[in-house]
Design a protein around this nucleic acid. Structure first.
Length: 664
DNA sequence: TTTAGGG
DNA sequence: CCCTAAA
């Protein structure tokens, strides 16, 4: 155990690339609409098809001659589906770790992980790739007049140079299976230093800005340049657009201005905060988080405020790297939480904006344009839920791949569903047309998001992978930081620490936080179904859903926001009891007394909770949200608050006075 | 590190 | 929950 460091990989989601568009099955005339609805796939179903195929074909993957010929123009989504099926069946997925610090998308070979500096406490990029050598994988579904342009090849060279070079520059390797260049949008916007944009001389193409400054232009073989050959002319009359199963870093390296709807320069600091749940590295356990904090200092996760003023060269180098990845895919923000398995970037293509904007046009107008009136969405990727993997440092990259594959496979066994979010609200009625739903206007398309959801009717996937030395588990909604350690090490330090601890009070708040073993079902209040339901968290209000670059967890240096973990009534009870006893100014003692074994509750948390409790108690019950706290408890909160604030006032009044007695 | 308070 | 200032 001592000799074998383990690698904790937190996956906030794997991205499964996909692109599709579909007709807007909505017309003014009811009959027409019915016709459309009957004949064409509902958008949601189509999405499900895509996702399902992408996710299920991994088993049956016959070699494919090619799947990369451009799709022929058609409005028929059944053809589109067929195309998707075709693609999916022929394209097994692969799991590849790659170097986040290089634009090469360098795929690691089967070397030992340690040789690649995939080391403990760091996070490496992982991605789900389209199959190697399968050619440009286009999931493009033709709609309207767009044509499929040459897709970019995926680079899978063995050149590890970038990686190696970066090793000394980075505070650590990021293992980030999440995808599209989300790194440091905010950073990028604020830094003056940007890598030179590498712009192709080919007017019809744009070569992404890449952070490794590899020479790149369109004349170079794309397989060497490691960049996508992006053709993107949304505004063309031809509505030409090219999509592909792009890889994560490829996305990350996309040019800054590739279309009005593609890139938003947003200060993601704001959105980061606005969508903490999806942004955070929530798979990292508190333990890990705290470990990191202690390692790097508690201020490391500030973004620019800090990085700008106080960081060393290494830091700057890192941020330089962030810059060029700043324009990753567009992703929905304010997705409720990662337990809904992340958002999916959606891009809107408007072949005929005028039509889209003429919802109030006369029927004839609408009718006339209806054939041209389709909704084109580009789903850059699907995300699978967070996974937590622990793997020996001596494990090979190959086994890492295998482990990740098993994790993904295990999850996918349960079946998937697609959720549609429009402006942050879940669209539940599958029978509505897109137009009825509002998925037709350009502005709303920007607010469209997709989630992958586990099929609730399926049995949860096994928590452990079969055979291998690696164990993995799904993050569950309540305990998103769950992890399972390999073999005999299934009790980690934290468990060891907390297990023998004696809770001073009969506090119900012992820390059941991480799942330390597959058999640990002792978590309070949680049924297994709850644990595996990725939407089990309490409903989260979603404000305006907008599109921002996918916030994949950023560099591990940027410790992510912690998971929100609402206090249970039992915890509130314990807190109230402790505060009654100790007062409102001794949060550390409160923590020790009542929450000592709840590692995820800090004294700051308790103080904050008390603050909110007091507030809750003072507002009307109608205004309260979340799990209702018994009025009796709230009353106690108020009285304790009153009492202790009075005591505090007395203390201030006459300092020499003795400490107030614990009357309660 | 803790506390206190604003965000 | 986060972030900080101040103790």
């Amino acid at each position: 155990m001592m000799l074998q460091k383990r690698l904790d990989y937190g996956f906030s989601g794997c991205q499964v690339p996909a692109t599709l568009c579909f007709p807007k099955s909505s017309k003014r005339k009811r009959s027409a609409r019915r016709k459309v609805e009957n004949k064409q796939l509902c958008a949601i179903d189509l999405l499900a098809t895509v996702a399902g195929e992408l996710l299920s074909e991994r088993e049956n993957c016959a070699p494919s001659p090619q799947c990369n010929e451009g799709a022929s123009g058609t409005n028929d989504t059944s053809k589109a589906t067929a195309k998707l099926d075709h693609l999916c069946q022929k394209k097994p997925l692969k799991i590849e770790p790659f170097d986040q610090h290089s634009c090469n998308d360098t795929v690691l070979g089967p070397e030992v992980a340690t040789k690649r500096q995939i080391s403990c406490g760091s996070t490496e990029h992982l991605q789900i790739l389209s199959p190697k050598d399968s050619g440009p994988a286009s999931l493009l579904v033709k709609c309207g007049t767009e044509r499929n342009l040459p897709a970019s090849p995926k680079v899978e060279g063995d050149d590890l140079t970038g990686f190696q070079e970066s090793e000394n520059q980075m505070p650590g390797n990021g293992l980030d299976i999440n995808a599209v260049g989300v790194y440091g949008m905010e950073d990028s916007l604020d830094l003056d230093t940007k890598p030179p944009a590498l712009v192709s001389s080919d007017s019809s193409t744009e070569v992404p800005v890449c952070w490794n400054y590899l020479p790149s232009n369109s004349s170079l073989p794309k397989r060497e340049s490691g960049m996508e050959h992006v053709v993107d002319r949304d505004d063309d009359d031809n509505s030409s657009w090219c999509t592909h199963l792009s890889t994560i870093t490829n996305k990350a390296c996309r040019p800054q201005c590739i279309g009005n709807h593609r890139v938003r320069k947003l200060s993601t600091l704001k959105y980061w905060r606005a969508a903490p749940n999806i942004l955070k590295y929530s798979h990292i356990s508190d333990y890990d988080t705290e470990k990191k904090r202690s390692l790097h200092g508690k201020k490391i996760y500030y973004t620019r405020q800090r990085t700008q003023r106080s960081y060393c060269k290494r830091r700057k180098l890192f941020e330089r790297c962030l810059v060029s990845t700043s324009n990753g895919g567009m992703y929905s923000r304010n997705i409720p939480n990662l337990c809904e398995m992340g958002g999916i970037g959606v891009e809107a293509h408007h072949p005929c904006t005028a039509v889209l904007d003429t919802n109030d046009a006369s029927p004839s107008q609408t009718e006339q344009s209806s054939s041209y009136n389709s909704v084109k969405l580009r789903i850059k990727s699907f995300m699978v839920p967070e996974l937590f993997i622990e793997i020996p440092e001596t494990a090979t990259v190959g086994s890492l791949k295998q482990t990740v594959m098993e994790a993904v496979t295990a999850f996918l066994q349960g079946g998937m569903r697609i959720g549609v979010l429009l402006q942050g609200k879940k669209v539940r009625d599958d029978n509505k047309t897109l137009r009825q739903t509002g998925i037709s206007c350009s502005d709303k398309l920007d607010n469209l998001g997709f989630t992958l959801e586990p099929n609730p009717t399926q049995t949860p996937p096994p928590l452990t992978s079969s055979g291998g030395p690696h164990f993995l588990c799904l993050d569950d909604a309540v305990e998103p930081l769950a992890r399972i350690l390999p073999g005999a090490l299934s009790i980690d330090q934290e468990a060891t620490d907390s297990a023998p601890q004696v809770v001073l009070t009969s506090s119900p708040v012992s820390d059941h936080e991480p799942i330390h073993s597959p058999t640990d079902t002792s978590s309070l209040d949680q049924t297994p179904a709850d644990k595996l339901a990725l939407v089990a968290l309490p409903p989260v209000r979603i404000e305006a859903l907008a599109v921002v670059p996918l916030h994949k967890p950023r560099h591990p240096e940027h410790v992510q926001r912690r998971i929100r973990r609402p206090f249970s009534v039992a915890e509130v009870e314990a807190l109230v009891q402790a505060v009654e006893k100790l007062g409102t100014g001794r949060w550390r003692d409160v923590k020790l007394r009542a929450f000592d074994s709840a590692k995820h509750r800090t004294y700051v948390d308790l103080k904050d909770k008390w603050k909110t409790l007091v507030h809750t108690a003072r507002i009307s019950p109608q205004q309260r949200r979340g799990e209702p706290v018994p009025q009796e408890l709230l009353d106690r909160v108020l009285s304790a608050q009153a009492y202790w604030s009075q005591q505090q006032a007395k203390l201030h009044a006459k300092p020499p006075a003795a400490e107030p007695c614990l009357l309660l």
